[in-house]
Nucleic acid binder design. Structure first.
Lengths: 210, 210
DNA sequence: ACAAATTTAGACAGGCTTGTCTAATTCGTC
DNA sequence: GACGAATTAGACAAGCCTGTCTAAATTTGT
């Protein structure tokens, strides 16, 4: 395992103050001195790790956003699958778990570092997701007033049943992820779905709440 | 400030490993020895704090649940107010913030302690909230299949826009809380509300999706 | 195969923390 | 005011961790 990967693992498990360089060296399979040669000191190593994780997580999120169903065949199934992918590739995976924990644990101690994360991460990914929902609404598949709100609510609903698990830092089972996504998307569509599926004739005025 | 309060504050700010007894003593305004006299050692002190916070937070949550609108005059407004109270009294307040942070930060290190929290906390509060939603549905105000799912989705929606803020450990402004609750409750009611307000004639078959 | 660069093990000083001990001081109560 | 209980300040040993240093071993490029 690389030094950065080992350090991420140890910092997450033990927190910054509880981690020590010898643990990281042992887990990375290098000598302590090599870590000092590469990264200077403990704090610089920590910063390098957060930057690295932010970058990798962002890449994963954007890659997953690019699989958003723009022309869904089965809107419910496609959104559920998207929510599951999001969880799988960005939230439950190693990098996502680590980054989330480091932000929660050390966020207050490094305000500038995490302000940077906030801009590069949520600051760029939320608008990207919102744009996809806006497009879906524009194409007549959904009835959305505010795409930014809808995007955040979509993710919140998809993860609604995983909150306690995330709190404790553990990873939900595949079944739990699918279950939560299914329930979340169904509720999302009850709120934002067209009352009647889009016909091949294309967009029509909404029939809802008439 | 009492020893327990000071310790909660310091453990949250510095993490278990980063906290030291002298800080806690200084913040509590007592001598180090007094802490050792009362609590034995650092780890016992930590456990005492988590138990204390769990108890106080639970009390707050149950007190707030008891204000759930069983006979709402204005369903939307009453649910928004309830969501705001929940945030205010249980999530954004000092105890809620501290307990959440300790669980996130040290949850993996004390599995039994936090399993205990899980049973006493979420294990008891979620069913209580779900029961209130079940009652509201039974009384004809909502259309809910699974009250447990609906309860979790209600809270998830109400907090949907506060996630990033919570992540970093900061407290949202009053406006942000109200905004998120308002948007969340509106979406919740689009999904679970009766299509038409309940009339004084009482429960009727839904008119939806006709 | 050889020279330069990198990595290693281990020792080391300096600093910090925990938990104990003691002697003096303050507090509560009668 | 006096007595017992609790609290305090401070010293202290033992342990751990960081970051540096050195000399030997290993890897790398040519």
């Amino acid at each position: 395992m690389s030094i950065v990967d080992a350090a991420a693992s140890v910092f997450c498990r033990e927190s910054f103050a509880g981690a020590n360089i010898d643990m990281i060296a042992a887990e990375a399979g290098v000598s302590r001195q090599t870590i000092y040669n590469h990264h200077g000191d403990k704090e610089k190593l920590f910063v390098a790790i957060v930057r690295d994780l932010t970058e990798r997580c962002n890449a994963g999120i954007f890659a997953t956003i690019s699989t958003f169903p723009d022309q869904p065949k089965d809107l419910e199934a496609d959104l559920i699958a998207f929510a599951v992918r999001m969880n799988h590739n960005c939230i439950c995976n190693r990098d996502g778990k680590f980054l989330r924990k480091l932000i929660q644990t050390e966020g207050e101690r490094y305000p500038e570092l995490f302000a940077e994360w906030r801009e590069e991460g949520p600051g760029r990914t939320w608008p990207a997701i919102a744009a996809r929902f806006a497009r879906l609404a524009h194409a007549g598949f959904l009835e959305i007033d505010d795409p930014d709100v809808a995007a955040r609510q979509f993710m919140a609903l998809a993860n609604a049943e995983l909150q306690t698990t995330f709190m404790l830092g553990s990873t939900p089972t595949e079944d739990e992820v699918v279950q939560s996504a299914t329930n979340g998307v169904r509720t999302f569509l009850r709120a934002f779905g067209k009352r009647q599926p889009v016909t091949r004739a294309g967009k029509q005025t909404a029939l809802a709440s008439a």
